[in-house]
Simulated scan of single mutants.
Amino acid sequence: MFPKNTWYVAAMPEEIDAKPLGRKVCGESIVFYRGEEGRVAALEDFCPHRGAPLSLGYVSEGKLVCGYHGLEMGCEGKTIAMPGQRVRGFPAIRAYPVVERYGFIWVWPGDASKADESLIPVQEWHDNPEWAYGGGLYHIQCDYRLMIDNLMDLTHETYVHSNSIGQKEIDETPCKTTVEGDMVITSRFMEGIEAPPFWKLALRGNHLADDVPVDRWQICRFTPPSHVMIEVGVAHAGKGGYEASAEHKVYSVVVDFITPETETSIHYFWGMARKFNPKDKALTATIREGQGKIFGEDLEMLERQQKNLLAWPERHLLKLNIDAGGVQSRKIIDRLIAEEQGGAVPAAETASA
Rank of each mutant, 00 (worst) to 15 (best):
G57Q: 07
C47G: 14
K63L: 14
L64R: 03
Y68L: 04
P53I: 12
S60R: 14
L71H: 00
Y58I: 12
C66I: 03
L71V: 08
V65P: 00
L54Q: 10
C75K: 15
S60D: 15
L64N: 06
M73D: 05
C66K: 05
K63E: 15
K63N: 09
P53S: 14
M73Q: 14
S60M: 09
G67W: 01
R50G: 08
R50S: 12
C66V: 04
Y68T: 02
G67T: 04
C66P: 03
H69V: 06
P53Y: 09
V59L: 09
S60G: 01
G67L: 00
R50E: 15
S60L: 13
P48R: 00
Y68N: 00
G62F: 06
G67S: 02
C75I: 13
G62V: 08
K63I: 00
C47N: 12
H49I: 12
A52T: 15
L56P: 01
G70M: 02
F46W: 15
V65K: 05
G74F: 00
L56F: 15
G57W: 04
E72Y: 03
V59Q: 07
L71N: 05
C47R: 12
L56G: 14
G70R: 01
P53D: 10
G57T: 02
F46E: 06
L54V: 10
G62L: 04
G74V: 03
E72N: 06
Y58M: 14
S55E: 03
E61V: 04
K63T: 10
G62I: 06
G51A: 09
L54G: 12
H49C: 11
K63C: 08
C66R: 03
P48G: 05
G51M: 13
P53E: 14
A52C: 13
L54D: 08
G67Q: 03
F46R: 15
C66S: 02
Y58G: 13
G67H: 03
Y68E: 01
E61S: 13
L56V: 13
G51L: 11
E61G: 03
R50K: 15
G74Q: 11
C66Y: 00
G51F: 13
G70C: 05
G57N: 07
M73T: 06
G51C: 08
P48W: 02
P53M: 14
S55P: 07
H49Q: 09
E61Q: 13
E72D: 03
L71R: 01
C75P: 11
H49R: 10
G57R: 07
P53H: 12
G74L: 07
G67E: 02
H69C: 04
G74C: 10
S60V: 11
S60H: 13
L54K: 05
E72M: 06
Y68C: 07
L64A: 08
G74H: 10
Y68F: 13
Y68W: 07
L71G: 00
C47A: 10
R50I: 11
G74A: 14
E61K: 14
V65I: 15
L64D: 02
V65Y: 01
S55L: 09
L71C: 02
G70Y: 01
Y58R: 15
E72K: 11
C66N: 02
G70A: 03
R50D: 10
